[in-house]
């Protein structure tokens, strides 16, 4: 669905590249996470893929279209949810969706249905300018689904949303992906990436450091540990044991048998920890 080969981009058109020699492929139906801190080159790459930035060097095809010369009809197959909500504040939520729907050459979804999906049912007649930040964000997200996109660009889709709504959004992404929609997810939230993505790419300073599935990364870079909280002679103790080390395994079995266990958690490495380990940088 997306092919990127040796992509370079410089805002000043000099050797100071925001993105350098980036290559990756995303097959149809995959949820691909593009992860990195602010200024890493995520938005630049996404901007080039969506035609918001001009392709300077490299080869990029999106949904079968060469982005060297963007064809507007390409956007009939693409949905784009922006990190910063961008809806017309003087128009109602429904008017916003109806207006954008008229710009597509393909059948579009019912605005009321979309508003209901994102939890904005009954808010269709309210001007977007009166919406909270989270509501505007959900409206932007809903708009990105108008044309039943085959390829869906999601830029920080859960930023600024409360956990319940964020969970709804994640559910929608999973549901769309099950229907065959390819998702290009740009985020610095590793938990969402871990939950949604089939594969992730770590990008720092315009360079992709690695691309793999979260599961493989955890196996490769994580340590299998268990954290146990137990009562010992009236005192609460916490200890961490490796599930691979024989000595630790024996000690853990002994504690389970003799002590009063309060809590017990596996301590597999998070994607964030792996990111820091691989790139040496934190996600800020």
């Amino acid at each position: 669905m997306i092919t990127v080969q040796n992509l370079y981009h410089s805002y000043n058109k000099d050797d100071n590249y925001a993105v350098k020699d980036v290559s990756f492929e995303i097959p149809k139906g995959e949820v691909f996470g593009f992860l990195g801190p602010s200024g890493a080159g995520k938005s630049t790459t996404q901007g080039i893929l969506t035609g918001l930035l001009q392709l300077q060097k490299g080869n990029v095809t999106v949904a079968g279209y060469d982005v060297k010369e963007i064809k507007r009809k390409m956007f009939n197959q693409i949905g784009m949810s922006f990190e910063q909500s961008n809806v017309y504040s003087k128009m109602t939520a429904k008017e916003n969706l109806k207006f954008y729907a008229k710009l597509f050459d393909v059948p579009t979804r019912d605005p009321d249905e979309l508003l209901e999906i994102v939890g904005l049912e009954g808010k269709g007649k309210i001007r977007a300018g009166e919406f909270s930040k989270g509501m505007k964000h959900r409206l932007t997200f809903a708009r990105s689904m108008l044309n039943n996109p085959e390829l869906w660009f999601l830029d920080e889709p859960t930023t600024g949303l409360d956990p319940a709504i964020a969970s709804v959004i994640k559910g929608i992404v999973k549901e769309q992906n099950e229907k065959g929609v390819t998702v290009f997810l740009t985020t610095h939230n590793m938990y969402i990436a871990d939950e949604l993505c089939d594969r992730v790419a770590f990008i720092i300073d315009g360079d992709i450091h690695l691309i793999d599935s979260p599961k493989n990364l955890k196996l490769e870079y994580g340590e299998s540990k268990v954290e146990v909280e137990y009562g010992d002679n009236g005192k609460l103790k916490t200890e961490t044991f490796s599930t691979l080390d024989e000595k630790d395994k024996k000690k853990l079995a002994d504690i389970i048998a003799k002590q009063n266990i309060q809590t017990m958690h596996t301590k597999e490495a998070t994607l964030e920890e792996i990111f820091i380990k691989v790139t040496g940088r934190e996600l800020i």
């Binding site: 969506t50 035609g51 918001l52 507007r72 009809k73 390409m74 956007f75 009939n76 693409i78 784009m80 922006f82 910063q84 909500s85 961008n86 809806v87 017309y88 504040s89 003087k90 954008y100 710009l103 597509f104 050459d105 932007t140 708009r143």
Partner: peptide, 18 residues
């Protein structure tokens, strides 16, 4: 200016309209 303040030009730029 309204489009700029609402940041909607970017949304138009990814819509199938020339």
């Amino acid at each position: 200016v309204e489009e700029k303040m609402d940041n909607t030009i970017s949304a138009i730029n990814v819509a199938p309209i020339s």
